[in-house]
Design a protein around this nucleic acid. Structure first.
Length: 366
DNA sequence: TCGCCCTCCTC
DNA sequence: CCATGTGAGGGCGA
């Protein structure tokens, strides 16, 4: 039985949410921006609507450059409001979840889903379900999305990518090979610029060429995990299942400093809100952590870290602050350039064994 | 296993 | 001074 795996992607999500909440801006270029605060327009474009994209603006572009490109075209510049998009996203994902067998959220604007058992492996039924999901989101939220359907996650993801914006692409299992064959390897999920350029050195440009490559050769170059993934996914055969409800493994906060500095105390003092925010996150999710890491991004944008692991999970609010301070002092001594950005990461997350759950464990509710 | 680094993902 | 913020995962030396 072939799996029926879907991938849904909400189109230019943040900017589209803004368009829905103020339809008067729809005809204009819209960019949703992350302002870093170090100068008037420092920061990057997070999302651009298609009007802005036509004028050469894309995600990750510095705001000042985007503004130059949009000069004279009456642009709408909106600071990012993550909470707002989260609320819309949660409503939509709940709606999708109600219409599929399993859903695996992979970001605020995208998710994998599985329709194998509800369709019995019938792709024409899968197509109908995907269409009704799209219609439901349009009806309830006035938002467009793109969906890909295929026999594996890799195929579904490629499908939703090619369907953008607003489309649906169904790749039948028997069409998988011809669908993948001529696509560039860089289109594969997990293949970024570095891996693509390594593959190019081996003379591998397309997914079809990757499928014909010598697995031994790939393993020596990319390691066991990545090569295994590359071989399987090049044939559209990755067997990674759609997994519901996965737990987070780390939380982090990164800020851009007002001014570059190598002074640990100065860096740490600007991190006060980040520390508080991490503590809030820990308590609201009822988690503990074992490892805390200080992260520094230097003026040359290189990243450096120092970390400390505790023997047992901790969640004491003060522990984050005290250890972060020490780690930053350590980090600042080990680097040879100023910090541009600094951050704190906590990982090795575990659920709190609090009094309530402990008593439930000792004396299960009847 | 830890500490650190690298690569990648999305907007 | 153009270059954000969050999270996942793997490799590798010690």
């Amino acid at each position: 039985l072939d799996r029926v795996v879907g991938h849904i992607d909400l189109d230019y999500f943040y900017a589209q949410v803004e368009e829905v909440q103020d339809s008067s801006i729809k005809s204009r270029p819209v960019i949703v921006c992350v302002f870093s605060g170090r100068s008037e327009d420092s920061g990057v474009v997070s999302t651009a609507n298609y009007k802005a994209r036509e004028l050469g603006v894309h995600s990750g572009m510095p705001i000042s450059i985007a503004k130059k490109k949009l000069l004279g075209s009456d642009p709408v510049v909106i600071p990012m409001d993550h909470k707002k998009y989260e609320i819309v996203s949660e409503r939509i994902m709940q709606d999708v979840a109600d219409n599929v067998d399993i859903i695996e959220s992979t970001g605020i604007d995208e998710a994998f889903f599985d329709l194998t058992s509800s369709t019995g492996g019938d792709y024409s039924q899968g197509r109908k379900l995907a269409e009704s999901i799209k219609q439901s989101i349009m009806r309830k939220e006035n938002l467009t999305c793109s969906i890909g359907l295929g026999r594996s996650k890799v195929v579904a993801k490629l499908g939703s990518d090619m369907a953008k914006p607003g489309g649906l692409i169904v790749v039948l299992p028997e069409s998988t090979e011809s669908f993948l064959r001529d696509l560039p390897v860089a289109k594969l999920y997990g293949v970024g610029p570095k891996t693509a350029s390594s593959l190019k050195e081996l003379g591998i440009d397309t997914i079809g060429e990757l499928a014909r490559a010598d697995p031994q050769n790939l393993e020596s170059k990319f390691g066991r995990k990545l090569s295994g993934y590359l071989v399987a996914s090049s044939k559209g055969e990755d067997d990674d299942p759609v997994k519901a409800g996965s737990e987070p493994t780390q939380f982090s906060r990164v800020i851009t400093l007002k001014k570059d500095t190598r002074d640990a105390r100065e860096a740490f003092s600007q991190l006060a809100d980040a520390v508080t925010s991490l503590q809030d996150k820990l308590s609201s999710t009822n988690k503990s952590f074992r490892t805390i890491t200080a992260v520094g991004i230097l003026t040359d944008l290189s990243a450096h870290t120092k970390s400390k692991t505790f023997e047992a999970p901790v969640n004491n609010a003060m522990i984050i602050g005290e250890n972060a301070r020490t780690l930053f002092e350590d980090l600042s001594r080990s680097v040879d350039k100023d910090f541009r950005r600094v951050g704190i990461r906590i990982s090795g997350l575990a659920d709190n064994i609090d009094q309530k759950s402990l008593s439930e464990f000792l004396q299960p509710a009847r």
